[in-house]
């Protein structure tokens, strides 16, 4: 598998920022009762992560160690402000609804996390790709949550009525607790899937069995 594909798989699934790393839930969970807002917010996060990783990776040899954090925050805020300005000019309705949450992208831990963990020691383009895929992994999960919340909470998807007229909206889905439960469900599902796959896959291939046997006895005991 090429390196770009490995990063893609890692960020979307094996190391997904939401259900494995539990990062950056804060800024977006609140808007997940509306699909359109979630799409725009998560896209904003993905783009900010991608471009701030790109910029920071390109500048990494120039940044003095003492002010690294401050420069990182500056770069991140720069892109977030650009997004805010664009939203205000071209999507005024969305900008009004998102309110303070656009600004909160700055404190999204994923962006800082990728800048520290990856962009710090990698080439600019690869960092860009890493940031983008991290953002996409984040987007995928939150969009899934938003589909459930908007469908059951309002009976609509992207504002278009889906549920039959007789459907009574579940108010709890619009309110905060449902988001916590849904995130927990996603975590449960993803972890069980990942845990379930590993023991099955191991005995299947003889090559892997051999390595497992050769490994220190800890695995044999377990």
């Amino acid at each position: 598998m090429s390196k770009t594909m490995a990063i893609l798989k890692d960020n979307l699934w094996t190391n997904n920022p939401i259900f494995i790393q539990i990062l950056g839930i804060c800024s977006t969970l609140a808007v997940t009762n509306n699909l359109r807002n979630t799409a725009i917010m998560t896209l904003g996060v993905a783009l900010t992560t991608a471009f701030s990783s790109l910029t920071l990776s390109a500048m990494k040899d120039l940044i003095p160690r003492k002010v690294r954090m401050i420069i990182q925050v500056l770069v991140i805020s720069f892109y977030v402000i650009i997004i805010d300005i664009l939203l205000r000019a071209y999507l005024p309705e969305v900008s009004k609804q998102l309110g303070p949450y656009v600004g909160l992208i700055i404190t999204n831990c994923i962006i800082m996390g990728r800048a520290e963990a990856f962009a710090q020691a990698s080439k600019p383009l690869l960092s860009w790709w890493d940031g983008l895929t991290s953002g996409l992994g984040y987007m995928a999960v939150l969009m899934g949550i938003a589909v459930v919340r908007e469908l059951l909470g309002f009976g609509t998807l992207f504002g278009i009525k889906i549920m039959p007229e007789a459907f009574v909206p579940w108010t709890i889905m619009i309110m905060a607790p449902s988001a916590f439960f849904l995130v927990a469900m996603v975590m449960w599902w993803a972890k069980s899937m990942q845990a379930g796959r590993k023991p099955e896959a191991k005995p299947a291939t003889p090559g892997q069995q051999a390595t497992a046997a050769a490994a220190p006895t800890t695995t044999a005991k377990a």
């Binding site: 120039l62 940044i63 003095p64 003492k66 002010v67 401050i70 420069i71 500056l74 770069v75 720069f78 402000i81 650009i82 300005i85 664009l86 205000r88 000019a89 071209y90 005024p92």
Partner: peptide
């Protein structure tokens, strides 16, 4: 450190000011 931080700030603020100015009428 000071020169670098200052330069980065100056460039960013300049770009942001331009972006803000150019979308002002639209807003």
């Amino acid at each position: 450190v000071v020169a670098f931080t200052f330069a980065v700030c100056a460039i960013f603020v300049l770009v942001l000011a331009l972006a803000n100015e150019s979308t002002k009428d639209l807003v």
